[in-house]
């Protein structure tokens, strides 16, 4: 495979031609937060956290879906990118209900990691405090919509790897939410194989295993 050399923040790296720029960033030792990206799943470039500036490009490009090519020069840390990245994380926190202190994923949460990465010490936009539900109908797992950031990793892993197609996104805009089957309780979806892949790829505490939740807090169906 052809190898291309490119520059990441003035560091020269060599990667196979055509691989996503994220791979070049990794080679250069630059870690950007990512939420919708998962190396085993198809990319959707939805979270926009991995936006980078490519010399000659008219706008910032998502590193997860932009192909590496010879001679590219990219920057990952310009003030505009940093401000945008922080605002995205702030908006994610304001959009759902994310009280880390009482979350089972506290300390093992990619949203929290992203907030730490961008140095979020304050959310500058008003919180929406949406009214959402918890689905505790599955015997092994729990779904807490309050903590869902709609990254669609669970939708993709169930579709592309498990092939069970349990999940989808319903509605649109700010009403978008994750649904199981025909918007029914997760535990009643016949096609669910209880494989737990969706729980494994969930970046936040939206999908969790019952065994990870302190006993007695949730009813068992």
């Amino acid at each position: 495979m052809a190898v291309v050399t490119l520059q990441v923040n003035d560091t020269t790296v060599a990667v196979p031609a055509g691989v996503p720029l994220l791979q070049a960033l990794a080679a250069a030792g630059v870690a950007l937060p990512t939420l919708c990206h998962h190396p085993r799943l198809s990319p959707v470039a939805a979270c926009r956290l991995c936006l980078v500036e490519l010399e000659g490009a008219s706008r910032p490009l998502p590193a997860c879906v932009t192909a590496a090519a010879e001679g590219q020069r990219l920057r990952t840390d310009t003030p505009a990118l940093q401000a945008g990245r922080r605002l995205i994380v702030e908006l994610l926190f304001a959009e759902g209900n994310h009280p880390c202190a009482v979350c089972v994923a506290n300390g093992d949460c990619e949203l929290q990691d992203a907030a730490r990465h961008v140095g979020m010490d304050l959310v500058s936009v008003p919180y929406r405090h949406p009214s959402r539900q918890v689905d505790a109908s599955h015997p092994l797992f729990l779904l807490d919509h309050h903590r869902c950031i709609l990254c669609s990793r669970c939708v993709r892993v169930c579709d592309e790897i498990e092939g069970a197609h349990v999940w989808a996104m319903a509605n649109r805009g700010s009403a978008t939410r994750l649904i199981a089957g025909l918007d029914q309780p997760w535990g009643t979806v016949d096609s669910c194989t209880s494989c737990g892949k969706c729980v494994a790829v969930c970046p936040t505490g939206a999908l969790v295993a019952r065994e990870d939740v302190p006993l007695g807090r949730w009813p068992t169906p």
């Binding site: 579709d159 197609h165 349990v166 999940w167 989808a168 996104m169 319903a170 509605n171 649109r172 649904i179 199981a180 089957g181 025909l182 918007d183 096609s191």
Partner: peptide
């Protein structure tokens, strides 16, 4: 088609 997909499209 997966029921979830059909519902997703119909509700969109």
């Amino acid at each position: 088609l997966p029921p979830a997909h059909v519902y997703g499209v119909a509700s969109f």
